[in-house]
Each structure stands twice: as C-alpha cells, then as structure tokens.
Amino acid sequence: MGTLKWFHNKMIFMMASDKTKSSVKQQIEENLKRVYDEALQEDVPDELSDMIKRFQAEKARIDKAKSNE
C-alpha cells in the first residue's frame, strides 16, 4: 500500500537531516505525527454526525434561551 512511499519519504527525511545527533528525537517526533495524523484521518461518520447533531441542538437551545430573555 503506502509502505514504499512511507519508506521513501522517511529516507529523504533522513538524508536531509543530521542523522547522527537527532535520530531518536526525530524518530519520536515522526511517530507522534503519524499517530496524530492517523487519529485525524480516522473515518468516523457515525460519531461525527452524532456530534454535529448535538452541536446543532445545543445551538438551537442557546438561541431559544436568549430570545426568551
């Protein structure tokens, strides 16, 4: 799948960097980014649409309370 591309990018990233000093820090940062991006791209239509529904309901509730003041 995207494995080759990932290794390719990683290789470019390595070559562009000072690989002796910062490898551990860089590898950690890179993995953190991957974990975060993975969570970011996770496909969660049900949860998201529930959240959006609740968001709209809460907005309506606030607006109604305001107009009744």
């Binding site: 290794f7 990683k10 390595m14 002796t20 000093k21 490898s23 551990v24 590898q27 950690i28």
Partner: peptide, 24 residues
Amino acid sequence: LAELLQMEEGEMPDMTDQVTMDVL
C-alpha cells in the same frame, strides 16, 4: 519513550534490518 522502545542515539532500529533495506 526512548527507554521503553530501547532506542539509542545514532540508531534507527527499523531502518537497518535486511527487509527494510530490500524495500528501500
């Protein structure tokens, strides 16, 4: 994290094995 993953400075654990090199 480095301790838990047994990473050491100057080492790229998942970049040095034969499978990875073959892919590269």
